[in-house]
Design a protein around this nucleic acid. Sequence first.
RNA 1: GUCCCCAUCGUCUAGUCUGGCCUAGGACACCACCCUUUCAAGGUGGCGACACGGGUUCAAAUCCCGUUGGGGACGCCA
Length: 519
Amino acid sequence: MVRTRFAPSPTGYLHIGGVRTALFNWLYARRHGGRFVLRIDDTDAERNVAEALAPILDGFRWLGIDWDEGAEVGGDFGPYYQSERQDRYRAAAQALVDRGRAYWDYATTEEIQAERETAQREGVRFLYSRSFMAETDEDRRRFEAEGRAGVIRLMIPRVGTCVVRDLVRGPVEFEWSREQDHVVQRADGTCLYHLASVVDDHDMEITHVIRAEEHLSNTPRQMFIAEGLGYDPPDYAHLPFVAEPGGRNKLSKRKLEQYLKNPDFAQIAEHGRAIAEAIGHETAAETFNPVIVDFYRTVGYLPDAILNYLVLLGWSLDDRTEIFDRAAMIESFTLDRVNKAAASFDPRKLLAFQERYMQAIPLDAKVERVLPFLRDAGLLAAEPDAATRAYVAKIVTAAGDRIKVAGDILDYPDFFVADDALAYDAKAFDKRIRNAEGAADRLRRFREILEGVEPFEAAALEARLQRFVEDEGIKIGQIIHALRVAVTGKGVGFGMFETLEILGRERCLARIDRALGRL
RNA sequence: GUCCCCAUCGUCUAGUCUGGCCUAGGACACCACCCUUUCAAGGUGGCGACACGGGUUCAAAUCCCGUUGGGGACGCCA
């Protein structure tokens, strides 16, 4: 049975690169009817693990990447928090010593550092001299009598090679003599990541370790640990990096502000920021940024769109298929079609997927997505009644593809504000009404006509306006722009006649009066 | 510095293993035109890449060698 895992540290946020790695693990498990484990790489030192973990778990849940075992759901191979497994690691470290694969070492950090510097000065490769290695219990007692604290180091072979058979890259060869005698247990008795990771993967019966490329060069030591412990090592697959927008470097949470300098990235960020501010959401760069998954949830992206974009970052099925729903993804995902080169994150393309997915969902689903934004922006009551929903549905229909993310509904606040609170775009008002020759008079005349149009619906309104245009001997542009600004306050919007119908006669008349009154 | 990985349009990629079907295909972005009451959407078209240099071969994006460039790893971090 295939078992994969993703092991996040509780950092307080879920970033796009992590999701991509988790997604590939999840897909591989689902593809093979296996299990996907969410293990938590926390440490004892971390205080508020639950708090720092919540955004990560919420992010996965929102994306629909579910885990069969691990944090909050438990399972038969727990505990799933590394902080609760130190005893296991210590036992493993001791077993390594017992099997002659590791040794107690009593060098101080300063002594190691001195050796390292000497090697560097002489231009040779640093390899620990093992001068403070304890070969017997008596050695240990002697060192400890000197007041030294012992660590456990791996007894890495100094000859030969290690071959990592990577499912993405094929065989990769490393010389053992390049590896250090890595510490696996600290002087304070706690154990380090590489040991913990190997022990956990074994205990949790992980069959495929699918992780980012940065771990490729860590793999020999992990294989050494696994073999030393008598484990059957898992299969490894090292994924290419998700690189920063417009660059080749690994995506980093520390460079969020720098990414904002990339024009495409900035545009996406700005679009989201406007929505977030309208609903009173925090928009500091560290927490609100297109590299962080929460950004997309806040702004109203669709999880499936994000997954679809992400599955294509470093993987493809063929030369043309690009729309994958969950089932299609699971069905077609294979590790042998994972790319080797880093793929840079392009939020622009993500938006393109979002648009396609948004166009595809049914009206009522769209309305449901949009409602919370109207509520959070204070434009609608918390519990909209059926009439209100129907009203919103009309707006959503009329807006059509203009609503790319759910939060885009906030581009149309004018349908929700009182007539006397309507804000006018000053530039549009001047251009279309104040300074347009004869516009105000035409508007005044058409207002009178509007009083009698029956029914007050798009088709009838359009027919009547066409007649007005003919009667006046003008072009449609000479009335419609002024009309738009008068009733919506803006120079741009969706179909004029739908707009009038949705607003209704009373409000249209009131708004035209108000606009004319501003002259 | 040492080791490892990678290299096709600005970006994501197909093609590379199994050389010829590749005058290199698709998508995003961009540009133009069409549609049009504005803004979107949609339609049509365009721009645009095999990093470089040597081989091997009748034939190289594809195989080999080298160069260059980029990235990653080298912790008592994870």
